[in-house]
Nucleic acid binder design. Structure first.
Lengths: 105, 105
DNA sequence: TCAATAGTTCAATATTAGTGAACTATTGAA
DNA sequence: TTCAATAGTTCACTAATATTGAACTATTGA
């Protein structure tokens, strides 16, 4: 009955604290690394950082990434398509994302 | 009777998640910016991001920065001398700190 | 010795994260 | 069309973390 509505901040409202906070979690960092490596959209389960994580936890991580402006989510069929908002992040904080993703750990 | 002991992680144990998490707070980011601008040690109150913050809150922010490996604290008289561990951070995550501190907000 | 200064620690409350269970929405097949 | 499977979300509960006032420790200087 009620469609799930995704909340995406406009580019101008993407904050540094928000971005850093979203990336300051090893699981979320792995999600973002997956999305960056794929260079395409991925479903939540495809980008899941580990197989044994609770669905609700995974969903929460995607929500945090979305609300921080790091990813854009749209619905396609039964899945959610998540893409990295690379252009937006780069426009706000040039080179930051690439640099953070470049570290091995 | 009991000296306050400061906990500082060795360089090798400074983690990306720890650094990003520590910097993902506007107040702590301001503290680190102050220390970077000063390029010297500062007391906690000198580097305080706003004057009306509770002492205990300020103390807690410094503890988080310290435990993340971002600052080194030593005691001098009645004050604590805080310095940015720039070399250590740069060794672990080259250019990251400078980049994060370069954004205006 | 006493007051002032600089922080820390403690205890209480408030916010946030992780998770299982129940739910919604879409697809595909009987 | 109905039903099961799939993909996520939302809710409710618990656990961890942040904020703050009050009490405390340590140092200095009068």
């Amino acid at each position: 009955m009620f469609m799930v509505q995704f909340v995406h901040p406009p580019r101008s409202e993407i904050s540094l604290a928000g971005v850093l906070g979203a990336l300051a979690d090893p699981m979320r960092l792995r999600i973002v690394k997956s999305l960056a490596a794929q260079n395409d959209c991925m479903s939540c389960t495809e980008a899941a950082p580990c197989p044994d994580m609770a669905k609700s936890t995974l969903s929460n991580h995607f929500r945090i990434l979305r609300e921080a402006g790091l990813i854009r989510t749209s619905k396609q069929g039964v899945q959610h398509r998540n893409v990295l908002r690379e252009e937006d992040i780069n426009a706000r904080f040039p080179k930051l994302l690439k640099m953070i993703l470049s570290y091995p750990e």
